[in-house]
Design a protein around this nucleic acid. Structure first.
Lengths: 174, 174
DNA sequence: CATATAAGTCAACATGGCTGACATAAAATC
DNA sequence: GATTTTATGTCAGCCATGTTGACTTATATG
């Protein structure tokens, strides 16, 4: 037991095994992502509960708000869920007046999605809660740290297409 | 259409509204968290599917591996789910030999939870996939960025108790 | 005209949250 | 020693949100 847990004696303090440290650092990152994401979604979940909505509704509202006039296929591609799953929540959002549909002009098979005023109000409430949370975190750290945070998140994103959405705001850096 | 999408002409480049930029920065953070977390869990989900397990199993395995000998109550407190929800997955993990239970010594009502060898093997597989993903992201950026990433995630975590788990590895910085 | 595509629908099923009610064993308290 | 509290587990049922598969309708495109 003891011989497994403790690294070889003597050199421990000064030459702490870099492989162990690296591993521990990575494990901490995993755990921090879990807790941070839980709290991040938590602030929105509380609001959604007032409306009888869930996270699925939030995601739809978020992306429609972000890309007004997007098609149903666009939304499916971003969310990576099935049409049937999406239609359950999208149907509710449309019926309850949070999202409007409009036939496409070039392609009239498409239904272009937009938030109504009511939808925008909800989106703003949800987004404000999450932005406040993140703004608080950003405020406590320097601009460097914020940039580091962004870079690491970009690195975690596997999909090149997703990544491209974010390369715009900040300078290319190459 | 066009007048909605484009910001007012002329002054955009040089005097870009700092409030708008801040807002856009925060909105991007929200979106990046969504995509990064989706991919982060995605690499584990693929493995879990091989075992017929879901994310709930993963979380239990993860925290039991991280805190061997923890009690059921401890786990409930970390996961913030109900006993009934936990027992559904924990029961499977125990029955299929991934987790062992052992009566507490001081308090024999407690069931101390540990991964079996089989459980540790699965934990290692899952963790390795996620660590690889994060290691890749860490490798592309500097140590500064990693530190910034950690700081921002800590700032997002509301709960002081959760936060304390992470203040150990890195220097206090005050 | 034939085929492909965008969207929607119905039905059935799985996972993993939840509530509420209750049981058992062991610890803690009066 | 009797009572109460705590740690754990269990049964039953509900809800949200994901899945697959089959099929329809309208429209675009070759």
């Amino acid at each position: 037991m003891a011989d497994i847990k403790s690294p070889p004696h003597g050199a421990t303090k000064l030459t702490a095994n870099p492989l162990f440290l690296r591993d521990e650092e990575l494990r901490q990152a995993i755990e921090m992502l879990f807790f941070a994401y839980r709290d991040f979604t938590g602030v929105a979940d509380e609001i959604l509960a007032d409306y009888g909505f869930g996270r699925a509704h939030h995601r739809a509202i978020y992306f429609i708000g972000r890309h007004p006039g997007m098609t149903v296929s666009d939304l499916l591609r971003i969310l990576r869920i099935t049409k049937q799953s999406l239609n359950r929540v999208l149907g509710q959002l449309i019926e309850e007046g949070y999202v409007s549909q409009q036939k496409g002009v070039q392609d009239r098979r498409q239904r272009l999605l937009r938030l109504t005023d009511k939808g925008r109000a909800l989106e703003e409430r949800l987004s404000a809660a999450q932005r406040t949370l993140i703004a608080g975190a950003y405020r406590e750290v320097g601009a460097e740290s914020v940039e580091g945070f962004r870079k690491v998140l970009l690195g975690i994103m596997g999909n090149e297409e997703d990544r491209e959405r974010f390369e715009r705001l900040l300078p290319p850096r190459r």
